[in-house]
């Protein structure tokens, strides 16, 4: 598991720095980073969580996976990757956010995040791109829609005691992935 996370992070980091050096536009870099993230995210959700917990019922996935000896939830998996990247570089950062987060800290934190999350919710299939200043530095930011790809997603989100929205269906936009790249 740890190895997988590391691979994603290293792979993503590698792409980030290499393309930036060759002058590829920020938008393109962000799109490529997103491709890697979303592919791995979907693979974990479908081939590990959905398959083992819902289809085969051999293990559960739990928010407290350590105590429960369970699988980390796909959202946690994604967040661990994002934090792992933060341990290693400041060249880019990403986060999985939602207008209806189970954990309040995953709600929109900046104006751009709020705007972007609303945009991807209201404009199906489109991404949102923008720039913003945070902590005195300018960032390119991209927001990508995040879908409920399998049942496991909505089961948890509709049933969690802290979830503000309980009418999600498979295929709905649940939130968005925000990728930031410092512009200097």
């Amino acid at each position: 598991m740890k190895r997988t996370l590391l691979t994603i992070a290293v792979l993503a980091f590698g792409i980030g720095s290499a393309v930036a050096a060759e002058g590829i536009p920020f938008r393109k870099v962000a799109d490529m980073l997103y491709q890697v993230m979303s592919a791995d995210r979907e693979v974990y959700t479908r081939m590990v969580v959905q398959r083992l917990t819902v289809d085969k019922k051999v293990i559960t996935a739990s928010e407290h996976f350590e105590d429960d000896s369970a699988l980390p939830l796909p959202a946690q998996m994604f967040r661990f990757g994002a934090e792992r990247v933060m341990d290693q570089t400041e060249d880019f950062s990403y986060a999985l956010l939602s207008l209806n987060p189970i954990n309040k800290k995953n709600g929109p934190g900046t104006d751009l995040e709020r705007k972007g999350l609303r945009y991807v919710l209201e404009n199906e299939g489109e991404n949102f791109y923008g720039e913003e200043e945070l902590g005195g530095e300018r960032y390119f930011a991209a927001v990508y829609p995040d879908y409920a790809v399998v049942e496991a997603c909505i089961n948890c989100h509709n049933g969690h005691k802290d979830s503000p929205r309980r009418d999600l269906k498979v295929g709905d936009v649940m939130g968005g992935v925000v990728i930031r790249i410092p512009m200097e």
Partner: peptide, 19 residues
């Protein structure tokens, strides 16, 4: 300790408002 406030969580620029 499964640190509740790990550094990596706050290094993300979206947490700048908390810095």
């Amino acid at each position: 300790a499964d640190d509740s406030h790990p550094r990596r969580k706050f290094r993300n620029p979206r947490m700048a408002v908390y810095w």
